[in-house]
């Protein structure tokens, strides 16, 4: 489905501030995988997703998506294969446009855009159905601007937009981090439902180790631009958070620590 080969990514290359964000990263995502990714700040999680989406081009290495080398393809030319939801709840939608206008933009993903009117009634009907399924009462607000919605509602809209038009891959970049716990749970469940129903392959970054182990079928742990742990199958089912942290310290000879991770793993 997706293969990254020897990916290196530098920031501020050839300056005193040079930072190597990804180090010889190689890994393969199988069809139907739902991978959760954890790691402290600066581990390279978001950089990894940016390489997959095409927002960044790698300095070395290759990105192979569905058997095609897409390493040099800009983001907009890979878009039809994937949907993406961001941590910032304003990033996944255009807030000055209405709900139905946002959907209409997602609706034409991967298809040429011309001078047809962007929205028609059958489309509206379809949007309404999709929103009714989510059950946030958004189906009555199709003509409201997205900027008026709450963060959780915007994230739900962004999720739906990301999964319209049959993408193969869903990229979730800490998409519940800025939401209150209750809303976060709802959005996370919605994500899982969509992934299951649409049979998507998904990469989800999270800072919540519990979520990382409870959701999906495979967990990657990253540190300083490398994948340190890659756990799946029976081994993952039995793993506890404490064991996960122990295995990290064993490998890296240091504690896995960010405030956020510690706080959430205390529960």
């Amino acid at each position: 489905m997706l293969r990254l080969q020897n990916i290196n990514k530098y920031f501020a290359r050839n300056t005193p501030d040079e930072r190597r964000a990804l180090k010889n990263l190689t890994f393969t995502v199988e069809d139907g995988d739902f991978i959760t990714i954890v790691g402290s700040n600066g581990a390279g999680k978001t950089t990894l997703l940016n390489i997959v989406s095409g927002s960044y081009l790698p300095d070395t290495g290759r990105v192979i998506l569905a058997g095609k080398d897409v390493t040099q393809l800009p983001a907009y030319r890979r878009a039809k294969y994937m949907g993406r939801v961001f941590q910032n709840t304003f990033q996944g939608t255009a807030s000055s446009l209405t709900l139905e206008e946002n959907f209409a933009i997602a609706f034409r993903k991967g298809k040429p855009r011309g001078l047809r009117l962007a929205i028609n009634d059958p489309m509206r009907q379809k949007f309404r159905e999709k929103l009714t399924e989510v059950g946030l009462g958004l189906e009555e607000r199709l003509r409201d601007r997205v900027g008026l919605l709450s963060g959780g509602q915007r994230q739900a809209v962004a999720l739906l937009m990301a999964t319209i038009g049959d993408p193969k891959l869903l990229l979730l970049d800490e998409h519940t981090a800025n939401l209150d716990p209750k809303t976060a749970k709802k959005i996370l469940e919605l994500s899982e439902t969509l992934i299951r129903e649409e049979q998507l392959t998904a990469l989800m970054i999270t800072h919540d180790l519990e979520d990382a182990l409870n959701f999906g079928n495979r967990t990657l742990m990253m540190d300083e631009g490398e994948i340190v742990l890659d756990i799946s199958g029976e081994e993952r089912k039995r793993l506890t958070i404490a064991e996960l942290l122990d295995r990290f310290s064993e490998r890296r000879h240091k504690k896995f620590a960010t405030d956020r991770v510690l706080l959430s793993s205390d529960r």
């Binding site: 989406s53 990033q91 255009a94 206008e101 034409r108 011309g114 047809r116 962007a118």
Partner: peptide, 29 residues
Amino acid sequence: DMFLHTEIGLAIRATGDNETLVEAQGINP
């Protein structure tokens, strides 16, 4: 008015609002 409600028109308004989104939706900004 009509132009800004077409597929291209909508893309123009979205580009001024959120270029990241526009790219993620397969539009060349």
